[in-house]
Simulated scan of single mutants.
Amino acid sequence: MAAIGVFCASSSTLEQKWLDLATDTGREIAARGHTLVSGGGCVGMMGAVADGARAGGAHTLGVIPQSLVDLEVADVHSDELIVTADMGSRKNLLIERSDAFITLPGGLGTLDELFEVWTTATLDLHDKPIVLLDPEGFYDGLLSWLEGLAHTAFVRESALVRVTVAKSIAAALDEVESRRPAAS
Score class of each variant (00 low, 15 high):
Ala48Val: 02
Ala48Tyr: 00
Ala50Asp: 11
Asp51Gln: 07
Ala58Pro: 02
Leu61Asp: 11
Val63Pro: 02
Asp70Asn: 13
Asp70Cys: 08
Leu71Arg: 15
Glu72Cys: 05
Val73Asn: 11
Val73Gln: 09
Val76Met: 14
Ser78Phe: 06
Asp79Met: 01
Glu80Phe: 08
Leu81Phe: 09
Thr84Asp: 03
Ala85Leu: 13
Asp86His: 07
Arg90Glu: 00
Asn92Lys: 02
Leu93Phe: 04
Leu93Cys: 02
Leu93Val: 07
Leu94Lys: 13
Leu94Glu: 13
Ile95Arg: 09
Arg97Asp: 11
Ser98Cys: 06
Phe101Val: 05
Ile102Cys: 06
Thr103Leu: 01
Gly106Thr: 06
Gly107Glu: 08
Gly107Pro: 13
Leu108Phe: 15
Gly109Lys: 14
Gly109Arg: 08
Glu113Ala: 04
Leu114Asp: 15
Glu116Tyr: 09
Val117Ser: 13
Trp118Gly: 03
Trp118Tyr: 14
Thr122Leu: 06
Asp124Gln: 14
His126Cys: 10
Asp127Cys: 05
Asp134Val: 04
Pro135Asn: 10
Pro135Met: 04
Phe138His: 14
Leu143Tyr: 09
Leu143Pro: 12
Leu143Ala: 07
Ser144Pro: 10
Ser144Arg: 10
Leu146Asn: 06
Glu147Val: 04
Arg162Phe: 06
Ala166Gln: 03
Lys167Phe: 06
Ala170Tyr: 00
Ala172His: 08
Asp174Gly: 04
Glu175Val: 01
Glu175Gly: 02
Glu177Lys: 04
Ser178Phe: 10
Arg179Gly: 01
Arg179Thr: 00
